[in-house]
Each structure stands twice: as C-alpha cells, then as structure tokens.
Write a protein that binds this DNA or RNA. Structure first.
Lengths: 207, 207
DNA sequence: GGCAAGTTTAAACGACCGTATGAATAAAAC
DNA sequence: GTTTTATTCATACGGTCGTTTAAACTTGCC
C-alpha cells in the first residue's frame, strides 16, 4: 500500500474497508491507518467522509453506464430500426457491470449492493442521475422486443434483474449450504455466473 | 406509541428507524426517544444494541420460514411422491415472505434486504441457521422438478430469486424514471408485484 | 404493612467519531 | 536562493456513541 499517491491509497483502503464493515461502521481513522496516510488527508483530498464515498462510487459506476450506452447505441445502429433480441439487450445491460465489478475484485459489488438499499444524502441523487438514462433506454428498447408486455411489467422485471445481479455480485460462496453436492469451483466461476444470470433474466422477461 | 409495553415500543421504534437510517446510523438515543422510554431500557431488555437487532430480525423471519416448511410439507404430502410443479414451489417460497413482510409495513423489508448485504457478528449465523433448512429443501425439491438442471444451476438461480425478491420488497416507487408512462398504482400493487415475481422466477428457472 | 422481584430512571463513564487548525515539509516557479 | 503553492503532519475540539451504575419506583405475594 505505497508507491501510489495519497489520494489513490485512500480510495483503495476505503474500498476494502467499506466492503468489509460497511460505510457507517468504517471510521476515517481505520482508513487512513490502513492507507498509511495522515488522518487529515481525507478531508484535504475529498472534503469529507461523504465526499470520499461519492468519489469512490462515481469512479466505479460512471464507466459502466457509459459502456452500456455505447453498446446499446452500437447494437441499435447495427439493427437498423429492427427490435433487438432480448437476450442481447440483457447482455448489454449486465455484462459491463459484471465484468467491471468482478475484475476489480469483490469489494465494489459489496459496497454498491448495500448502497442500493441504504439511504445517503446526495448519493442516491448522483446514482440516479447516472442510471436514469440507461434505465429509460433499456425499458424503451425492451418494449420494442416484447411489445405484448406493459411498461409496468417491463420496469418491475428490470428491477428483478437488477436485484438478481446485485445479489450475484455480492454472493459469497462461504454461505454455501452443505449436503447438496455443490461444486464450489463451478459456482464461483465468472463465466458461469454471468451466463446463468443472462439465461435466467432472458427467460424471466419472456415468462 | 404508548399503551404497549416498553419492550414492544422499543421494537416498533427500532424497526421504523433502522429502516429509515440503517442499523449503524441509528442511535439508541433516537430509538428510546421515539419510543418514549428510558435510554437504559434497551440494554435492560435486549442486553445490547446488537441484541435488539437480533430479536427484531428473529421475530420477523422465523415465522416466514416455519410457514415455508409447513407449506412444502403439505404440498409434498399431497403430491404423493410426484415432483411438484415448479411454479407452485416458487410460490411456496416467495408468498410467505412477500405477504408477511408487506403486511407489517415496509420497514422490515428495508432492514432485511440490507442485512443480506451487511456483515453483523452473530447475525449472519442466526439467519443462516434459520434459512439453511429451507434452502436445502428448496434446492432438493427443485431438482426433482427440473432434473436436467445441475445443483449449481439451481442454487445460483435460487439466489437470483432471493435477490429479485429482496429488491422488490425494498423497491421504492419514488425512484421511478419519468417519461415511460408508468402507472404508479399498478406497479405498487401487492398482487401485481408478487405475481410478476413468481412469473419471472418460474420462467427464469426453466430458461 | 412489609418484603422481594421486576422495571424504570437520571446521570455518568470512557471511547471514538468527523472535522478543523496551524505549523512543518515538499515541490514548483521565478 | 527565495518566494509561492501544494501537501502532509500532530494535535485538539466539540459531540455522540453504547454501556454501566445505583438509586427510585412499581408490582405482586406473604
């Protein structure tokens, strides 16, 4: 935990510790100790503890949603006015998130899935600002795929998908129930998880 | 918030405030003030703040899982050795939770969906103790419904279902994205949500 | 009444929190 | 080399936290 700048060391330590103990239960003293920087450095670089969280989250989800929009634009351009295949649309939504989040370790998924359920002044607004365009695009596109579904059905199913995704990302294999003959290596695999999730959601939207 | 005993008033206040601000961000002073009882009453009746949470959670999820097991026993007895219909199995798992949690207001769903992602010493163990038999029974029964699926596929899909359910329970309609023509009354309906969730998961398990 | 067990009360404890300050240090500009 | 700017540092502030204590009060039993 050295060699990098102070700011980055704080972000790294915060990511780890927020994931481990949650945001409110993690003190700046723990973070700065873990990052081997001075306590006051957090307020110097991020203004406040909330500012630190905000930057951490933004740094993570902003590129994911940019990538989603980019893929959606490309797919729709290629389709040339035809509706997309639902499975492709779901993959566009899920893959950037699962890949990005899993690649950089398991810390951010823990944090994000908690933040989706936890109130934080200003942060919900920020996430909503980032996510809203994607959700609108997704619901609109899915409505073209599945015209027999009402917007309410599509939106609520979109939320089921988000819930399943978040649960997947934060899913810890240590909780495994014994006696079922589960192969841990299989169920931990990145590809296995993503493909299962895509299949589950694709079928779920249709059913 | 009076007329009931001190212990119950504390539980009620804690449920409300934990849901609103989260467990770590809620102080015992807020709780006891809201419940109009003395600060020390919490430690007298529950031993500690953690003890209060533990009792609150146990009081909520224990009857849900008892009911799930009861329904599963009844359904399997009625089937007389034949595999259950997947949709029925999913309903057995989801309906007690959705009904119980929605009936007693929206407070507990918020708390529970957070706890599923938040670490708490001893509490995870407690929840695991209560949930493990249900999960084992569910995976076993679903394997008989869908023998072509591997245990890993069934378990990970069971977790998708849990994720979707938790997200549904804690889903706040204020977050609705405008411009999609969503009817808020429809999407807020208890029956609509439950039936959509069951359909989504039933199809998801098959797909 | 008088004792006993259960419950509620006000007050205090030590610990830790997020934040602010001003001096010390390093880096950059001139 | 000196001045200016950016960063790091030790330290302190006011506040809130969960928990404890011991006295006061309530209730039911003899």
């Amino acid at each position: 935990m050295s060699g990098l700048g102070t700011k980055q060391r704080i972000l790294d330590a915060a990511r780890t510790l927020f994931a481990e103990h949650g945001f409110p239960a993690t003190s700046l003293r723990e973070i700065t100790k873990h990052a081997e920087v001075n306590l006051a450095a957090v307020n110097y670089h991020f203004g406040s503890k909330d500012g630190l969280l905000k930057e951490l989250v933004n740094e993570c989800i902003e590129p994911i949603n940019t990538e989603r929009i980019r893929l959606l634009d490309a797919a729709e351009a290629e389709a040339g006015g035809q509706p997309l295949v639902m499975r492709d649309l779901i993959r566009i939504f899920l893959e950037p998130a699962v890949r990005e989040l899993c690649d950089q370790g398991s810390a951010m998924p823990c944090i994000l899935s908690r933040l989706h359920h936890e109130p934080h002044a200003g942060l919900e607004e920020m996430m909503s600002d980032i996510l809203a365009p994607t959700i609108t695009r997704f619901v609109t596109a899915s409505h073209r795929c599945l015209p027999h579904r009402t917007p309410e059905e599509l939106l609520i199913r979109g939320h089921f998908m988000i819930g399943a995704m978040l649960h997947l990302l934060d899913f810890n294999c240590e909780e495994l129930v014994p006696g079922l003959g589960i192969n841990e290596e299989v169920i931990s695999g990145y590809d296995f998880r993503l493909e299962q999730l895509i299949s589950f959601c694709t079928a779920g939207f249709d059913g």
